[in-house]
Design a protein around this nucleic acid. Structure first.
Lengths: 361, 361
DNA sequence: CTGAAAGCGCTAACAC
DNA sequence: GTGTTAGCGCTTTCAG
């Protein structure tokens, strides 16, 4: 008669306690691995746990611990172009899903997810995926965190002037960014030394003997785009090339193709190209080949990121490696650190890029 | 003296009630949009909410509603090959992150995420990302759900014989699959009519005049790989081609390249290739070009999925479209349906593929 | 080392 | 239409 009185609902601590003949508190201690419990009793409790099939209720636990063991992984973007889906007069940058689709078109985000998950998982934590491309969506992210649905946020911004970091810190919520915020907010972040990366690319092209070098930059309203361009230009200037042709892309393969077309039209004799990411570099290679230029013999191409696109390309891309997974893991570490010590100061960690030489340059 | 007594901690229902001069219950009603509340009072409460900056505590709410508004989005795989990372004698298919990295190397998963998020988001729900490539990881997913950390699970299996669906239904947990389970489990799922898709590809190649057609199949231990091959073979046989060369790939570009090399070595005169996904088709195109074959003039190539790789390829791939985002959305709808009516029967929805003609065939 | 008891913040009967 | 109240299942002092 001590059994089977709990036919409905999942077993609770109470049930286990009864089955083990101890108090709820003791069961709780055993379940949470708190010391100071008689080994013999521990064993009895463990038995009872497995007999009853007990699983602690996360909500009840969260209610008292004030922790959820979840973190929000949010992809944030300020302005998305109107979707070219032709589905009627929808909002120009609305929540029609074009943003979420675009995000994953770039192999970059998958790598971030990989890095985050690999750090979180061994610690029993999980990422909740969120997108914050509109002001409404941003408010929802803030609300989500304020409700205590997640312990903190990992922010990957696709555009500068993203208001989200500000909103978050203002609300006293724990957050860490991938990439330095445009306006200095007191918040931790990881970033890459983009300028150094661009320098590596420029020097490689120069060392290779290229003399008429152009660049396909990233969007100039995103910090990474600016920094890579700046690093490239500075290096070129320092080596006696104060004027280098530039075509702005949007980090997509398509925009890379268009940029390459423009470059080729204006400078048919170029012999080297630095693209600010691999997707654009790949687009450039396609266009070059279509125009009868051999890569790297006629035109050398260097990409950036060392994403999966670099190996997918023919020839495989010489590129500047951004250790995305490692950076994402570090970003996660910074967040968990902050959660453990809420008033630890904001920290930033800058990673150094590395040149990876393959076939394209 | 009615104010500022709550300097510490977030404001609770109690605080709002006090500020509005009503009871907790009333505040709860207006916050949750329950009818039967005097409009005037509603207004007063809303004021109080915004004055206090109240945000409902999700844990407390979940504790009583038994809902979290989160669903687990789990990528499940049975056997992953040993990582080729050369980092010492690690476990052959361990939790070293190689699985998570592989998963996002394919544009497929990003599309699934997109579809899921776009369905979930307007409903105030969010996906928690999980991976279940080892038996340990699978147990964690089950435990996660049993703790009530998420209301249900969306499963994307990368291999057949995945034990997860069985574990889940056995535990009475709500789950829906992307792709039919290998062994018939009583569980809802969405899937594509893979055979029809393969038929479309074969017929297109045939109609185009190709007579020496080979195929690069997917891994034969995954249902989609089998079905696409079966559909292709049947159609070829029906059109008088009982024997078509086959090379097995693993749905990666690299494996597609290797398969194409083999095919070309044995059948130098082939004039058409059906690859079971776009990544492999892209690899095939590269290899064909390296061997001096023009696509589509010398050899026509048809892919499968209509992923981003199809457009990234030169020439753009003629392919069989799998409406991944729509299928993922439907999968999500099925899950929420199930959550709303727990004893609704298991349902399956099969989507029809569509041929998309571009440059490669 | 173990038990008793006080909540965590919210929803949902149930009274009024 | 609104307030009272009883928990939801857990952790955590505080006694013993």
């Amino acid at each position: 008669m001590t059994d089977d009185l709990r036919s409905a609902g999942a077993p609770t601590l109470e049930d286990v306690a009864r089955a083990a003949g101890v108090s709820r508190a003791t069961v709780s201690r055993v379940v949470n691995g708190v010391r100071n419990v008689d080994p013999a009793i521990q064993e009895v409790v463990r038995q009872a746990v497995s007999v009853t099939g007990y699983a602690p209720n996360r909500a009840a636990r969260s209610l008292v611990t004030r922790r959820t063991d979840a973190v929000a992984l949010v992809v944030s973007g300020a302005g998305v172009e109107a979707g070219a889906d032709g589905e009627g007069p929808g909002p120009a940058s609305g929540e029609d899903g074009s943003f979420t689709a675009q995000v994953f078109a770039d192999p970059f985000f998958g790598r971030v997810v990989t890095g985050v998950v690999n750090y979180l998982r061994p610690r029993g934590m999980h990422p909740v995926l969120m997108f914050a491309e509109t002001s409404r969506a941003r408010d929802e992210v803030v609300a989500y965190l304020r409700q205590g649905s997640a312990d903190g946020a990992l922010i990957v911004s696709t555009h500068a002037e993203d208001p989200l970091p500000g909103l978050l810190t203002e609300a006293g919520l724990a957050a860490v960014l991938y990439a330095r915020p445009a306006r200095p907010v007191l918040i931790s972040y990881v970033d890459l030394a983009h300028q150094d990366g661009a320098r590596l690319a420029a020097e490689h092209l120069l060392a290779r003997g290229c003399r008429r070098i152009a660049t396909i930059s990233g969007p100039l309203d995103v910090p990474a785009g600016q920094a890579r361009l700046a690093g490239f230009r500075d290096t070129m200037a320092r080596h006696g090339h104060p004027y280098t042709p530039i075509a702005e892309g949007r980090f997509t393969q398509e925009s890379g193709e268009a940029a390459m077309e423009r470059l080729l039209a204006e400078h048919p004799d170029l012999d080297g190209v630095f693209a600010a990411n691999d997707l654009m570099a790949m687009g450039a290679c396609h266009v070059l080949r279509e125009h009868g230029r051999r890569v790297p013999d006629d035109v050398a191409v260097v990409g950036f990121d060392d994403s999966s696109a670099a190996l997918a390309c023919r020839p495989p891309l010489t590129t500047v490696r951004q250790p995305v997974e490692g950076m994402a893991a570090e970003m996660t570490r910074l967040l968990l650190d902050r959660l453990a010590r809420p008033d630890s100061p904001a920290t930033s960690v800058i990673f150094e890029p590395e040149l990876v030489v393959r076939g394209s340059a």
